[in-house]
Write a protein that binds this DNA or RNA. Structure first.
Lengths: 342, 342
DNA sequence: GAGGATTTGGGTAACGGTATCCATGTTTCT
DNA sequence: AGAAACATGGATACCGTTACCCAAATCCTC
């Protein structure tokens, strides 16, 4: 039973209870060399009897904290939940624990979040779609093992995990063109990032959209709404696109969240999906699969990405210095929100 | 510039750079008594010049970590994002940082997550909709300042923040009855909790549903699907309810996430909302506001709850021992998913 | 101007672990 | 049997802060 304000059990308590030295207990905890099976048994019993748990901050002063920091821009995108699930599933078989921190919408807040992680001596950092410049990411990576998700630049200081956004965007635009669409518009995202634009996934998707359009002789039909990859962003972007004349017959939103908003705008304009306007997204979030939404989208396996990120990070924690890139190949999931051009 | 593997700047580095004692630096950092303005200035300059940042684990060994742990069951529910936003907004004006950890779907995983927080010496813990028994919560609360969200029991060891789920559920059921519905069904959540059932919000919503039905002489029409408060849960629950004969004309899902799934089931059954079946949810998440979903729901202000939780927790960290309950009053947001009974 | 109070700065023992080094006892090998 | 190698357990410096002390200097007060 825990009594109020009782001092936490320490390694010294375990040692005296087991009648052994502190060193011995430490060795058992760390699974270090130099303890006999009998000693191990004895110490383990004492640990169990006292309910001892090592204090991570104390361990952190000399060794590891067994903590990895996960920076997410926010937690509204269900796609991030997939990443987190993959990561936690992977970490379950290890001694490490993941802690999330919200990066927010600006570089400043994000930077503070990452600093907070480093101040707390995490053993490694995973950043999802960070806004920071490559230089800043490398600065972080020089101090702590780092894995960056959803950014495309190559760095020799950190590992990268991302999907092939070019392939994904191509799938969508080709799909729409194959359905006979010509006036295909795109909703992209504006960021506060200091990254090279071409390293950010939304810019890659947008650039690919333009490229494929051009390749099909549709350069004149290119229409891009610079908005945001969230619901309101998609809504406003789509409103703007639909107000153009002639209006697009298809909208490729750079993310499902935005596509959900776009659907709202289409609906509000009194238009039907996909009869009047086809809508496609990216990420294949659960929501899109709901039959009354039935959003055509690009699937990138978030769980696989999360798992890979965890694995790469722990490899780095264990000492790997070379940089690794892990790329997942996306696939198109066609649903009812896209159909033949009118 | 940071060179690879460079040792982090410590308080001793600052002290020698400023030609003062370690104590003096520590005092300045902590804003403690006993430093002249000149000394303060001098030390602050040294801190800036060296880019010094206190190492939280070291501070944690003696005092605070300025870290608060936020346990969320998962990050799929957008309602949790509202809570987080309220909390982070509040913490912005303080020295504290919030870290999230995923509690998961079972008591065992949740307990491990909370242990992980305590092992890391967080200054306080906020638990959102925990599964643990009241006894376990109090055990945690005896060790660390604790605030529990979305649970209804009174404890003298921790503060509680929740909405008046009874009032909220009543609003929904009364609304449906006023629309002329009689065969109103409910989708509830099954949990792995060891709490007293009547302290869990989904059970309160379910019990209130039954009570109001009875009060209106609709005891015979009570129909409850024991499922889960997520999309698939709502989908399966609704399927089951719709297969009954006669089928309900209205479904009150205990959470928006479940309502989204219920809408899918209704749609799949070839029925129209709200003409054939009205659907209502709880939480008033962003998604429900999308016009093509237009979900009637109960609004409980998540941001306010998050802010309150942060404030109460810091008060506890500062020493308050008495327990506080913070209750928000929900309101009904009527949208297109509910209409007159057929 | 003596004595006490106050201000200012610093020395240093914790905090709870880790990991290096060392001492002792036990095998193994020739 | 003696030496070398190995296995086992322990003493202890150290990690980077905090906060409790104390000492010296300055300021009042009568």
């Amino acid at each position: 039973m825990v009594t109020p304000g009782r001092r936490r059990v320490t390694i010294a308590d375990v040692a005296s209870h087991a009648q052994v030295s502190v060193t011995a207990v430490s060795k058992v905890i760390r699974n270090a060399y130099g303890v006999s099976p009998a000693m191990r048994e004895r110490v383990k019993n004492a640990i169990d009897e006292l309910g001892y748990r090592p204090q991570v901050v104390a361990r952190g002063m000399r060794g590891r904290t067994f903590t990895i920091g996960l920076m997410l821009p926010h937690i509204r995108n269900p796609f991030f939940a997939d990443i987190l699930d993959g990561l936690t599933e992977y970490l379950q078989s290890t001694d490490y624990q993941a802690f999330m921190i919200q990066g927010g919408a600006t570089r400043k807040v994000e930077s503070r979040a990452v600093d907070a992680l480093m101040d707390r001596q995490v053993d490694g950092i995973i950043m999802v779609a960070p806004l920071a410049s490559k230089a800043r990411l490398e600065e972080v990576a020089k101090e702590k093992p780092t894995v960056v998700l959803a950014r495309h630049e190559r760095s020799s200081y950190y590992d990268s995990v991302h999907d092939d956004d070019e392939a994904g965007a191509e799938l969508v635009v080709n799909h729409l063109i194959a359905l006979g669409h010509r006036r295909i518009a795109h909703i992209t995202h504006q960021d506060d990032s200091h990254a090279r634009p071409s390293d950010l996934l939304h810019n890659i998707r947008a650039a690919t959209y333009e490229r494929v359009m051009r390749e099909h002789g549709l350069a004149d039909e290119i229409a891009v709404a610079k908005s945001f990859h969230h619901e309101r962003g998609g809504y406003e972007g789509a409103r703007e696109l639909l107000s153009r004349s002639p209006r697009p017959t298809a909208i490729f939103a750079g993310a499902d969240q935005a596509a959900l908003g776009a659907l709202a705008a289409v609906h509000e304009a009194g238009l039907a999906v996909p009869v009047d306007v086809s809508v496609a997204g990216y990420d294949n979030t659960h929501l899109g699969a709901l039959p009354y939404i039935a959003l055509t989208s690009v699937d990138q396996d978030g769980a696989v990405m999360g798992r890979a990120a965890g694995q790469l990070l722990l490899e780095r924690v264990e000492g790997r210095m070379s940089a690794v890139r892990f790329t997942v190949t996306p696939s198109l999931v066609v649903r009812g929100s896209t159909g033949e051009a009118a």
